[in-house]
Simulated assay, not measured.
Amino acid sequence: MKTAAAAIFFASAVVSGALAETGELKAFAACPVYRDTDDGIKSGCWLATDPETGIVYDVSRAPTKPDWNFGVLVEGYVEEGAADTCGGVVLNPMRLSLLRDRACVRRVLPAEDYPGVKFRLPGRTVQPLYIPRKPPEPPHEDVTFNLFFDYNRDFLVYQLDDYLMDDAANHIVSSSPKKVTVTGYAVREPYEVAGGVFVEKEEIAKARAETVAEALRRMGVPAELISIRTAFNPEPVTTEGTGDIPEASRRRADIFVDY
């Protein structure tokens, strides 16, 4: 029965995968499936099927990985010219948000000659603290730093958000601003995608602000400089240079540095 299910799953990928338009933004909710590829450590990959189109997508490039016991909210762009290394249309950049209210049955597929993707250290890995940071050059002007989040989460993603936090903290500690305001946002407007309608919890706005404020304190920003506030349903901000997607930019915390 499992073999037959796998065959149906990937017949769908072969038949309908060509229908996915390059560069198009895709968003849907689904159960993740793990492909156990065998091209070295961490080469295994993750797949998810759009329930409306039946197209299988390779979601392995997400900065966070799924828990195969639960569903995921998939949001990402079809990557131009990406090789099929897993058995699905590659999404990149993308976000993969865990949906703990959606139980899933664990599914593992064999390699079936798919090589998967070898692990590569992200280009924006934070440098060790003993390496000097370049301080911002005066004159200092008011500036806002943005931190983006998965749906309904306040978790700062390793090797993604920590890079942005390091940049913000270095700027603040090196330039002596008058105050720092951290604003946490939640998207309370319904977000409709294939497979469901999603609305963030109101309290996630405060949780995001508190998470970022605490991170700043731990990175050397004086506690007396920091205040927090919350807001809802913000407009998207630019994701240029972040490797992120527009919808994630609404699920954010802003660090406003006031001189």
Rank of each mutant, 00 (worst) to 15 (best):
A7G: 09
A7N: 08
I8S: 13
F9I: 06
A11K: 13
V15D: 00
G17Y: 02
G23Q: 04
G40Q: 06
L47F: 10
V56Q: 02
S60A: 12
S60N: 13
R61V: 01
R61A: 15
A62C: 05
D67K: 15
W68P: 15
V72E: 06
L73W: 07
E75C: 06
Y77C: 02
E79C: 03
D84T: 11
T85K: 11
M94I: 06
M94K: 06
S97V: 03
S97W: 03
R100Y: 03
A103E: 14
C104S: 11
V105I: 12
R107W: 07
F119W: 14
R120T: 09
R124E: 03
L129T: 03
I131P: 00
K134P: 01
E137Y: 02
E137N: 05
F148G: 01
F148V: 14
F155E: 12
D161W: 00
Y163F: 14
M165R: 01
D167E: 13
H171I: 04
V173D: 03
S176D: 15
K179Y: 01
V180G: 08
V182K: 13
T183P: 08
G184W: 05
Y191H: 14
F198P: 09
I204T: 14
A207G: 04
R208L: 10
A215H: 08
L216N: 04
L216A: 04
R218T: 11
M219A: 14
G220C: 02
A223N: 10
E224F: 06
L225I: 00
I226E: 10
R229C: 10
R229Q: 15
N233W: 05
E235T: 15
E240Y: 04
G241D: 10
T242L: 14
I245G: 07
S249A: 13
R252D: 03
R252H: 05
D254E: 14
I255W: 14
D258A: 06
Y259K: 08
